[in-house]
């Protein structure tokens, strides 16, 4: 056998090696890629099949613009709250002397970060609804009537419920980064005469920055795509982009397919960009954790 034939055979085998991947790739194409592709196409197609930008133009006005603004605000604010509180809590968890206590709190975070959707919304109605446990306790003991200034069915009510699943996710993200802060660095900084503030400013925070930035983006995406929590609390009354999409989808007749497609594509863009940047940053941040 000449080497040429062998090479040819090897190349042929390499090509054949891809065949067992086909069922998986075909499945992803049919169930994920094609629907998104036709959504993209539909978002640029008018009622007569012509190319148009009118669906995107609609996104800048009325209920669509309000929904996007609310979704961005809600996701942004709960991401920031989650990142700040999660970093602080994560730091204190790492400081706990008892390994057992550390493991317990981390396990709690793992469980609660998956506690979302309808059961979470219902739990917040029990705690902070107009006759909620905490609502009554505050009224009784502190004479503080939180209603009607606050409502669990309003923006800040939603923010409180969203932060519930954001915070533990951030704790889980930040703990490996905090654990990666080597005690030698701190000792070295102290040995060179740095104060605790200087240590954090020049060593601690810069090392944590990638994890914090990555957390911010992941938490943003985490809240932006959420639906069930907000739906259970407000039905379609509070304008969020996912609820708006859901509203278009209810009923057998599709109300405004073009607008739905455009909303879907813009949501994908927001989420996709957050996830991509999150991946890039967290991959870069990981080098400190070796």
């Amino acid at each position: 056998m000449t080497s040429n034939q062998a090479k040819k055979r090897r190349r042929k085998r390499k090509w054949l090696d891809w065949i067992p991947l086909m069922p998986f790739l075909f499945f992803c194409l049919v169930i994920m890629i094609l629907p998104l592709f036709f959504m993209l196409k539909g978002s640029f197609t008018g009622s007569e099949g012509q190319f148009t930008l009118e669906h995107y133009a609609k996104m800048g006005v009325s209920i669509y613009a309000i929904s996007f603004r609310n979704s961005i605000l809600l996701s942004g604010i709960t991401a920031i709250l989650g990142v700040i509180m999660g970093t602080i809590v994560g730091y204190f968890i790492c400081q706990l002397r008892s390994k057992r206590a550390q493991e317990l709190v981390t396990a709690l975070c793992d469980v609660t970060s998956n506690f979302t959707g309808a059961p979470l919304a219902f739990a917040f109605i029990v705690v902070l609804g107009s006759n909620g446990v905490l609502t009554l306790a505050l009224r009784e003991y502190l004479n503080w009537k939180i209603y009607p200034a606050f409502s669990i069915y309003s923006f800040w009510g939603l923010a409180l419920a969203y932060t519930y699943f954001q915070l533990p996710l951030m704790v889980l993200l930040i703990i490996p980064a905090i654990a990666g802060l080597k005690s030698e660095w701190r000792e070295a900084a102290r040995g060179l005469g740095a104060s605790s503030g200087q240590y954090w400013r020049y060593v601690g925070l810069p090392v944590l920055t990638p994890a914090i930035g990555a957390g911010l983006l992941l938490l943003f995406a985490n809240a932006f795509g959420a639906y069930a929590t907000a739906y259970t609390l407000t039905e379609f009354r509070f304008p969020l982009i996912t609820l708006q999409l859901g509203f278009l989808l209810t009923g057998e007749v599709f109300r405004d397919p073009g607008a739905g497609d455009a909303m879907g594509i813009l949501t994908l863009l927001m989420m996709g960009m957050s996830i991509i940047i999150y991946q890039v940053i967290s991959r870069r941040g990981r080098k400190w954790q070796q």
């Binding site: 994920m32 795509g225 739905g260 879907g264 994908l268």
Partner: peptide
């Protein structure tokens, strides 16, 4: 491919499938 679904909220996936199929 296996990371993509993180960027696709349930409601958008449902919309795409209903529109196409």
């Amino acid at each position: 491919i296996s990371t993509l679904p993180f960027a696709i909220p349930g409601v958008v996936l449902a919309l795409g499938l209903i529109r196409l199929y």
